[in-house]
Design a protein around this nucleic acid. Structure first.
Length: 264
DNA sequence: CCAGACGTTGTT
DNA sequence: GTCTGG
DNA sequence: CCAGACGTTGTT
DNA sequence: GTCTGG
């Protein structure tokens, strides 16, 4: 999965954590505790410099920088940017073959910095009741950033001025959930520990084989998994209260009476 | 050949 | 039920 | 991911 | 742009 996350750090902090230059061009967004598809966020890319005509200078060392992108990858051939609304995730298992993603997997990988991400656990509805979904927040214990493996793409509106800035969009890779995370949900974002960031971003590496492995179970088990308020459900809500731990929903008295075992 | 999709999730 | 928007 | 819409005509 | 389905 991964359809919602929190990203609250300013560019200066991200520059330090990701050893990157600031390429946000003043477009950097502010603290967002409820990042949803179609929103603009800061990502990290690594590219060789280009000359005035935009040709790649292969011999110049690659530069890592922050860039603002919109969540939901719009393939360059799309006639309409709404195509990106459905391209928010990319299955790591099939990314290499999918026409919408394979070129980006080879040449346009990015990291998506996050404080943590949200997962909704579907609870067993039980007789006659409707299913409930309990949101959880997955985050680091030391407040360091997580990094999702992402793919990015540029899109130009065929009906717009060709000189206009293209729309830059991204998708988050997903894998099978590992360890405790699998208790919440069967998919999770492809989270990369910092020692894997350089390989993922390396522009000289066009074969992504070996880059798509989920993180080690031991590393993932270090993450904190906390129940949070259903306030996060609505994208109109935003603020630090969305990531605060809450106790699991207290039992409603009316429902509880209903739940009493039948006397025999 | 042309037309139409190009994606993931979850749920049944 | 299914699609769109955030 | 979840929430919220899901429609057209005409008039201001 | 490129693949799949008809």
């Amino acid at each position: 999965m991964c359809g919602r996350y929190a990203a609250t750090k300013d560019p200066a902090t991200l520059m330090r954590e990701f050893d990157a230059l600031d390429g946000t061009e003043g477009k950097a967004t502010r603290a967002d505790y409820n990042v949803a598809p179609t929103k603009e966020v800061v990502t990290v890319v690594e590219r060789h410099p280009r000359d005035a005509d935009g040709a790649v200078l292969e011999d110049e060392p690659a530069v890592r920088s922050l860039r603002v992108m919109r969540w939901g990858l719009v393939p360059f051939w799309a006639k309409d940017p709404s195509v990106g609304n459905r391209m928010i995730n990319t299955r790591a298992e099939t990314a290499k073959e999918k026409p919408a993603f394979r070129k980006a997997l080879s040449r346009r990988r990015c990291l998506v910095p996050a404080d943590g991400w949200f997962e909704w656990k579907a609870t067993d509805p039980g007789e006659g009741r409707k299913a409930a979904k309990e949101p959880y927040y997955v985050t680091t214990r030391d407040s360091s950033s997580l990094a999702f493996a992402g793919l990015w793409e540029t899109w130009r509106d065929p009906n717009a001025d060709p000189e206009a800035r293209p729309l830059i969009t991204f998708s988050v890779l997903t894998t099978d959930a590992v360890g405790r995370l699998a208790d919440i949900h069967h998919r999770m974002p492809l989270v990369l520990p910092s020692q894997r960031w350089a390989d993922w971003l390396d522009p000289n590496r066009t074969d992504a084989t070996g880059l798509l492995t989920p993180a080690d179970r031991d590393w993932l088990d270090e993450l904190e998994l906390r129940p949070v308020s259903t306030k996060v459900n609505s994208v109109r809500n935003n603020g630090p209260e969305l990531v605060e731990r809450v106790e699991p929903e207290p039992v409603n008295l009316d429902t509880a009476l209903f739940d009493l075992p039948n006397p025999r």
